[in-house]
């Protein structure tokens, strides 16, 4: 048998892809990386301890010593913003990691097992959809008590069906493609097929969904803190800072509420645009 010489098209190199990709994606990724670094190295970067305040120097405007001014208890706003990034990002990260794990496990097993199990999972997801996330969070706080734990549990429950539904739809399409069926005929086990083939092939969609859900989870958590049901003072968290700064805002020093709001908006906006870009790229690749 002669070897048939045919042209082999190589996949695009990294440079080619970067040139094709939009600069916006790189800028937004850069911003997010920067914010995450700020959160990680807050103790090194913050000029003051976050909970140390001088009541005599309250509600100051921006100055050389306090770049973003001080809050109503005289605490440095920039330091609190940097420390606040930790809890503000940790909450949604936990929610998304848990929700994505549950969603993928639920969706993939339901697609793989099929039949009555698939029907049951579909009904379960429909039922979960009926509960608004915020309401569920308030219920959880009432049961467990305020803090980060209750909203995280409630929002994990609320976000699981959103991710699971999309993953299930995509996995259902992949499930009966010839490459999965040929794995079955070859004799791979269900676990091997799911972990080596099915999950990797739905992962781009999972990533897009998880990224977009991260943005709304951050907003939801901030709203819960703003209502006073989440992270409790004196801990620094962006949603809490927005509500803390409210009275100062009315008294003419908007710096605390404003800076926390800007941080929330910047993160949510970047994450959403990135998520949409990922989804768009998946569509183009499909």
């Amino acid at each position: 048998m002669s070897v048939v010489e045919e042209l082999v098209l190589e996949p695009p190199t990294f440079v080619q892809r970067a040139r094709r990709g939009e600069p916006l994606v790189y800028v937004l990724s850069g911003i997010l990386v920067l914010i995450v670094l700020c959160a990680l190295f807050a103790p090194l970067l913050a000029p003051f301890p976050p909970n140390h305040g001088n009541i005599l120097a309250a509600n100051l405007g921006p100055s050389g010593a306090h770049w973003l001014g001080t809050d109503q208890l005289g605490r440095d706003i920039l330091s609190r913003l940097l420390y606040g990034a930790r809890l503000s990002l940790l909450g949604p990260t936990m929610i998304i990691v848990f929700a994505t794990t549950f969603a993928v496990a639920l969706a993939i097993s339901s697609v793989w097992i099929g039949g009555w199990f698939d029907q049951a999972v579909a009904r379960l997801l429909d039922t979960l959809f009926a509960f608004p996330g915020l309401l569920l969070a308030i219920l959880a706080v009432a049961m467990i008590g305020p803090g980060l734990l209750a909203p995280v549990i409630a929002l994990t429950l609320a976000y699981t069906p959103y991710i699971a539904r999309v993953v299930r739809t995509v996995a259902l399409r992949e499930r009966h493609l010839a490459y999965v069926e040929s794995c079955q005929v070859v004799g791979l086990s269900g676990w091997q097929i799911c972990f080596r083939h099915l999950i990797p092939n739905v992962s781009p969609i999972v990533l897009a969904q998880a990224t977009i859900a991260f943005g709304s989870a951050l907003v939801d958590l901030a709203a819960i803190s703003y209502l006073g049901l989440g992270v409790q003072p004196p801990q620094a968290e962006w949603g809490l800072m927005v509500s803390d700064g409210q009275s100062a805002l009315l008294n003419g020093s908007p710096w605390e509420s404003l800076s926390a709001c800007v941080m929330i908006i910047v993160v949510v906006l970047s994450v959403n645009i990135l998520g949409e870009r990922i989804a768009l790229r998946n569509e183009r690749a499909a």
Binding site: L177, A178, Y179, E181, S182, V185, V186, G187, H197, P200
Partner: peptide, 20 residues
Amino acid sequence: RGKEVQMVFQDPYSSLDPRQ
């Protein structure tokens, strides 16, 4: 069974895992 019967499918574009 895998060593007894193997199958080649109709559509060459979906019969291989695109990530492998």
